[in-house]
């Protein structure tokens, strides 16, 4: 009974939502909507549980006076401040200020550093070592050149060549990945629906 109940619930819920995808019936639709609403509530609660876990993790290390405890303290203070700004003072604009003047610039700065790393990496990546490297170098040069605003002035065929690269070899590879992923998803779903796998009820 201890194992049967979660498996039965999972199979029934899974089949119901699956049926809701294909069948339009008031009862199936309404129950399916409630199940989806439950998933959203669970997802939101998981976020809350994650915050609690994060707080507990760092609080334990601060109390043990471990290395880098100062950074952990800053993290906890920032987290607490943001929570207070969002929950206690929702209309004060404090949350928008934190987002616009702290979070946004920090994230953008980190992303901007990528430009330096990309150029450094290009020094090694574009080196001609073998045939594969030659193909990658030519493809990269074509795509880069075609993205230049004046690429048409260099050659009218450059944008066409870039389009061909994206439409044929890239699309073929991407479709293969998407189809493979879809087959894997179907297999996993069937295994869960048939109770071959039940990751939600680990022994």
């Amino acid at each position: 009974m201890r194992r049967f109940l979660p498996i039965a619930v999972a199979i029934i819920c899974g089949l119901w939502v699956l049926a809701d995808f294909f069948v339009s019936h008031p009862l199936i639709d309404s129950v399916g909507a409630k199940l989806l609403e439950g998933v959203m509530i669970l997802a939101a609660f998981a976020l809350f549980a994650g915050i609690l876990n994060l707080l507990g993790f760092h609080a334990r290390r601060i109390s043990k006076d471990q290395k880098d405890w100062g950074y952990r303290l800053v993290l906890m203070v920032a987290l607490g401040g943001t929570l207070i700004a969002g929950i206690v003072l929702p209309g004060s604009g404090a949350l928008s200020w934190i987002f616009g003047y702290m979070y946004y610039p920090l994230q953008s700065t980190m992303a901007a550093l990528l430009a330096f790393f990309v150029v450094s990496a290009a020094y090694r990546a574009f080196r001609l070592r073998n045939g594969e490297a030659l193909i990658m170098l030519i493809t990269s040069l074509v795509v880069l050149l075609a993205q230049l605003p004046f690429s048409n002035r260099i050659s009218p065929y450059l944008p066409l060549l870039r389009k061909w690269i994206l439409d044929v070899p890239v699309t073929a590879g991407t479709r293969g990945i998407i189809l493979g992923t879809a087959l894997g998803t179907i297999t996993t779903s069937l295994r869960i629906l048939l109770a071959v796998d039940h990751p939600y009820a680990q022994d």
Binding site: A115, Y123, L128, L145, L148, P149
Partner: peptide, 23 residues
């Protein structure tokens, strides 16, 4: 921004060519 993108793409092209010339 189109100027910045153009400058950066040209820089990448130069790096690719100079790298292989050096090697």
């Amino acid at each position: 921004r189109s100027d910045a993108y153009a400058a950066f793409f040209v820089l990448l092209l130069v790096v690719a060519l100079v790298t292989n010339a050096l090697y």
